[in-house]
C-alpha cells in the first residue's frame, strides 16, 4: 500500500486519483506514526520549496522520512518532491532539503535569458541508466527550478530545455521525477505502476 505525504498547498489529491484509477491501494500520511502502515511512500510536492520543507519540519516528518528510507522501502518524490530530496535549494533564499540525494536545486532562469519560465508542457525524457522505469517517453513538466546532481550515478533520466537537465533520479530505493507522472496520461500512469511493483 502506498502512502502519500500530505504537505503543501497544491493539488495533492491528483496522485491519489491516479493510484485509485490503477487499483492501487493508498492512504495519506499526515502524522509521523503513519509511515509504518505503508510499503511504498510518495512525496507529491506542490508549492514552494521552503514552504513544503517547513511543513515537513513542523509536522516532525523529516526524521521519519530518513528512518523510512533507511528501512530500504521505495520512496518517490514528484516535481517539488524530487527537488526536496536534494541538499539545498535557492528558491526564496537558501534552504536546506532532505539531503537524500547529493546536489542542489537552482533557477531555470539562470541558465539562459531566452528561456520561458516556468518550463511548462510535454517534454521527452532520456533514460540514462538501467532501471525498472519506462522513461524514454514524453511527460508533463511544470517547474521553474531544476536539480543538479553532484554524483552522476544518481542521474536516472535527462531532458532538454535550453540545455540538458536532470529529470529523473534514483539512488538505491530513493527515486525522483521532475515531471508529473499523474498528469502524463498513459506513459505517466505506467511509471506509477512500475513504482508500486518495486520490491521493498
Amino acid at each position: 500500500m502506498i502512502g502519500l505525504i500530505e504537505c503543501g498547498n497544491g493539488n495533492i489529491q491528483s496522485v491519489g486519483n491516479a493510484l485509485s484509477f490503477l487499483n492501487i491501494e493508498w492512504g495519506f500520511i499526515s502524522h509521523k506514526n503513519d509511515f509504518s502502515k505503508f510499503s511504498h511512500v510518495i512525496l507529491p510536492g506542490v508549492g514552494s520549496f521552503p514552504h513544503v520543507m517547513n511543513r515537513l519540519i513542523e509536522n516532525d516528518l523529516v526524521s521519519e522520512i530518513e528512518k523510512y528510507v533507511r528501512s530500504g522501502r521505495p520512496f518517490l518524490g514528484i516535481c517539488l518532491g524530487m527537488q526536496l530530496l536534494f541538499e539545498e535549494s535557492s528558491e526564496y533564499g537558501s534552504n536546506e532539503g532532505l539531503g537524500l540525494i547529493k546536489g542542489t536545486v537552482k533557477p531555470l532562469a539562470d541558465r539562459s535569458q531566452d528561456l520561458l519560465v516556468p518550463h511548462v508542457g510535454w517534454n521527452n525524457c532520456r533514460n540514462s541508466k538501467k532501471s525498472p522505469f519506462t522513461l524514454d517517453e514524453s511527460f508533463y513538466f511544470t517547474h521553474s527550478y531544476y536539480c543538479h546532481c553532484s554524483e552522476s550515478e544518481d542521474v536516472l533520466g535527462v531532458s532538454e530545455y535550453g540545455q540538458d537537465f536532470v529529470s529523473a533520479v534514483k539512488k538505491d530505493n530513493v527515486v525522483g521525477f521532475q515531471f508529473h507522472p499523474e498528469k502524463s496520461q498513459k506513459t505517466g500512469l505506467k511509471l506509477l505502476n512500475e513504482f508500486e511493483r518495486l520490491e521493498c
Partner: peptide, 8 residues
C-alpha cells in the same frame, strides 16, 4: 473530471 482525466 479529475478522477477520470490524467492530464493537466
Amino acid at each position: 473530471i479529475s478522477k477520470v482525466c490524467f492530464m493537466p
